[in-house]
C-alpha cells in the first residue's frame, strides 16, 4: 500500500500543480502568449508531436555522438596521463579551466571554427567539451583507485607495467568510469541544447531550435510543448543511465 502511495506521489503532485495552473490561467484571464494553460500546451503537443520527436532525436543523437567522442578522448588522455604523475600535474589545471569555463562563452568561438554552415559539428564539439571532464576525472581517479594491498601483491609476484595496467588498474577503474559516463551523458544533452541556442538559426533542428522558433513567433504554448519533450528526454536518459550503471556494477561485482 505505502509503496503504491510512494510511487504515485510525484504524479499526484504534478497533476495537482497542472490543475492549479489551469484554474489560475482561466480565472485571471492570463493572455495565452504570456502563460498558456496546460490544456493549450497539450493541444500544441498533440499538433507538433512528430516534429518534436524528430527534434528530440536530433538533440539526443548529437549528445550521444558527443559522448562517444568525449569518452574516447578522455579515456585515452587519462591513460596517457596515468603514465606519470608529472604529466597528470601538467594536464590537470588545463582540464579544470576547460571544465569551469561556461560552455555558452566558448560556443561562438567553436561555431566560427566549425563554420556557420556546419552547426552540427559545433554542437557535437561543444557537447563533447562539457562531457569530457567527468569521464577524464573519473578515469584518472579510477586508475589510481586500486586496493593498495592488491598493488603490493602485484609487486610481490613481480608483475610488469602492462600486467598491472590490464589486470589491476583498468578493472579497478570500471566503477569510476561508469559513474563518469553517467554524469557526462546528462551534461552532453545540456551542452547540445546550449550549443543549439547559440547556433541559433543554423542548420541544426534540435529541441532548442524549436523553442527559439516558437518564441520568435510568440507561440508560447509551442515553447512549453518543446520544453516538456526536453524534460521527458532528460528524465528518460537519466533513468536509462542509472539502470546502465547498476547493470554495469552488477556485472563487475558479480551480483
Amino acid at each position: 500500500m505505502s509503496r503504491i502511495v510512494q510511487s504515485l506521489a510525484p504524479f499526484a503532485l504534478i497533476a495537482l500543480l497542472l490543475v492549479a495552473w489551469e484554474i489560475a490561467c482561466r480565472a485571471m484571464h492570463v493572455p495565452v502568449y504570456f502563460l498558456p494553460p496546460p490544456s493549450q500546451v497539450a493541444v500544441a503537443l498533440a499538433a507538433d508531436w512528430a516534429t518534436l520527436l524528430r527534434s528530440a532525436w536530433n538533440t539526443l543523437s548529437m549528445a550521444l555522438i558527443a559522448l562517444l567522442v568525449a569518452s574516447v578522448l578522455a579515456q585515452a588522455l587519462a591513460l596517457f596521463v596515468g603514465l606519470s604523475p608529472i604529466l597528470e600535474r601538467a594536464v590537470r589545471p588545463l582540464a579544470v579551466v576547460l571544465q569551469v569555463t561556461p560552455v555558452v562563452a566558448i560556443a561562438p568561438l567553436v561555431l566560427i571554427w566549425a563554420g556557420l554552415d556546419h552547426a552540427g559539428r559545433a554542437i557535437v564539439g561543444l557537447a563533447a567539451v562539457v562531457a569530457f571532464f567527468p569521464i577524464f576525472s573519473g578515469a584518472v581517479t579510477g586508475l589510481k583507485a586500486a586496493d593498495p594491498d592488491l598493488e603490493r601483491l602485484f609487486d610481490l609476484y613481480g608483475a610488469g607495467r602492462l600486467q598491472r595496467l590490464t589486470r589491476l588498474r583498468l578493472p579497478s577503474a570500471i566503477p569510476y568510469l561508469l559513474e563518469g559516463h553517467k554524469v557526462a551523458a546528462g551534461l552532453a544533452v545540456i551542452g547540445a541544447v546550449v550549443a543549439e541556442f547559440v547556433a541559433g538559426s543554423g542548420g541544426a533542428q534540435g529541441l532548442a531550435w524549436r523553442i527559439l522558433e516558437a518564441g520568435n513567433r510568440l507561440q508560447t504554448a509551442r515553447m512549453f510543448a518543446a520544453l516538456v519533450v526536453l524534460g521527458l528526454l532528460g528524465a528518460v536518459l537519466h533513468a536509462a543511465l542509472e539502470a546502465g550503471e547498476r547493470a554495469g556494477l552488477r556485472w563487475w561485482r558479480g551480483r
Binding site: 586496493d147 594491498d149 592488491l150 601483491l153 602485484f154 609476484y157 613481480g158 608483475a159 600486467q163 589486470r167 589491476l168 578493472p171 579497478s172 570500471i174 563487475w252 561485482r253 558479480g254
Partner: peptide, 18 residues
C-alpha cells in the same frame, strides 16, 4: 584483498598468471 571482478578461481590463479 580479492579482486571483486574476478571469480574465486581467477583470484586464486592470479599469482600463477602473473
Amino acid at each position: 584483498t580479492l579482486a571483486p571482478w574476478l571469480s574465486a578461481r581467477a583470484n586464486a590463479a592470479l599469482p600463477l598468471e602473473l
